[in-house]
Amino acid sequence: MGAYYESNDLRKFGKIADYDKELADKFFEWYGAVFEEGALSAREKALIALAVSHAVQCPYCIDAYTEESLKFGIDKEQMMEAVHVASAIRGGASLVHGIQMMNKVNKQEM
């Protein structure tokens, strides 16, 4: 058995359609539309995608959106700040659950 993640697999993403073309076509059409220029620029979307890639810890997405960010000339400092934003949200998301823990403690403890 090989490694779970192979960087070359990203290149094969389109092959998802081999098992279900209709759904894959819908997905890729929607995906393409999402990243078009709109109220947000394509550059802004690339940076958001880079941050989200880190939040969902997808190695394929990290490769893809680091490169996409480079295409738009986004610099290293901006990319790292985006990663920190994602990390802060992930960290904050854990920490804020501490309130739930505290609520439970306060309710149950004498």
Binding site: E37, S41, A42, R43, K71
Partner: peptide, 17 residues
Amino acid sequence: NPTGAFLPASQHSLRKE
């Protein structure tokens, strides 16, 4: 032209910037 091993972003968006 890209400053590395990647393709350029869209001409339209970069022009604006």
